[in-house]
């Protein structure tokens, strides 16, 4: 109860701060929509010229129109901040208060999402209107609910991964290289560039099992595709693994914290 109230006020504060950076965030959203828009253009071009991808044109178009929002919602940018606060000692300010620094991280991510959503939705809507003939959304109902649950789990997974990578700063000087590698992998493997179903059949079993799928692609599959019950179980499994690893690595890290500076 106390934590819920703290979270509420932290989110309010985050939104106030984010509003100062609204133009900055708006520009960032513009960059987020460019990559799926390019994919959309070339794939539709290919289909128009007679190409036959393994998914329907409607699925492909709807997927690429929605993917920027669905990738943004469970994303997290905490690892860099966390690593800095460990390395420079800012973490100390949080450890002496009766409130976890991660509550602040969560509030920061939620606040940022609220503002970004307001900025990104119009851009996506424009994309949707341009390609309206091929965009198909399911009617409101159970499917949207499951989608939301899956999205929440995806968010928890990326946030946990951020904590794990951030925690590396307890032991290593610099985590930016690890982060760069992680984003490279995530870009391809999460399906935020093109749907995973387009990959060659030989690699599909691997793609379907790896965790990055459940951070972007899977929630979208829930919404506009037909994922198996097995896949849901797999998401729950990865979710538990990620959260567990985050808890363990944070606990271990705190033990070896030396609190640079004051």
């Amino acid at each position: 109860m106390r934590l819920a109230r703290v979270l509420r006020i932290l989110v309010i504060r985050e939104v106030t701060i984010m509003l100062h950076y609204r133009w900055w965030l708006a520009m960032l959203q513009l960059s987020n929509i460019v990559a799926p828009a390019i994919s959309l253009l070339v794939w539709r071009g290919a289909i128009a010229q007679g190409s036959t991808p393994p998914v329907t044109e409607t699925f492909l178009t709807t997927y690429l129109v929605l993917v920027s929002v669905v990738a943004m919602l469970p994303s997290s940018w905490t690892s860099g901040f966390l690593a800095d606060s460990i390395r420079l000692g800012g973490l100390s300010s949080w450890l002496v208060r009766p409130c976890s620094t991660h509550l602040n991280g969560i509030a920061n991510n939620i606040g940022e999402k609220v503002v970004k959503l307001v900025l990104l939705v119009p851009l996506v809507a424009v994309l949707g209107i341009i390609f309206r003939t091929e965009v198909e959304l399911p009617p409101l109902g159970l499917r949207w609910l499951v989608f939301a649950v899956s999205l929440l789990m995806a968010g928890a997974m990326t946030f946990s991964l951020d904590i794990v990578i951030g925690s590396l700063a307890f032991w290593f000087e610099d985590v930016t290289a690890v982060n760069r590698l992680r984003y490279l992998l995530a870009r391809i493997l999460s399906g935020s560039l093109i749907p995973l179903a387009l990959f060659p059949a030989a690699v599909i079993p691997f793609l379907n099992a790896q965790p990055f799928r459940f951070m972007v692609s899977f929630p979208l599959e829930v919404l506009i595709g037909h994922p198996s019950g097995q896949a849901f179980a797999l998401q729950v499994g990865w979710f538990a693994t990620f959260v567990g690893t985050a808890v363990v690595s944070w606990r271990l890290g705190l033990r070896s914290y030396q609190g640079a500076g004051a």
């Binding site: 106390r2 109230r5 703290v6 509420r8 006020i9 932290l10 504060r13 208060r97 009766p98 409130c99």
Partner: peptide, 9 residues
């Protein structure tokens, strides 16, 4: 201060 009010109940 408002944040601390919630944090320390």
């Amino acid at each position: 201060l408002l944040i601390h009010r919630e944090m320390y109940a």
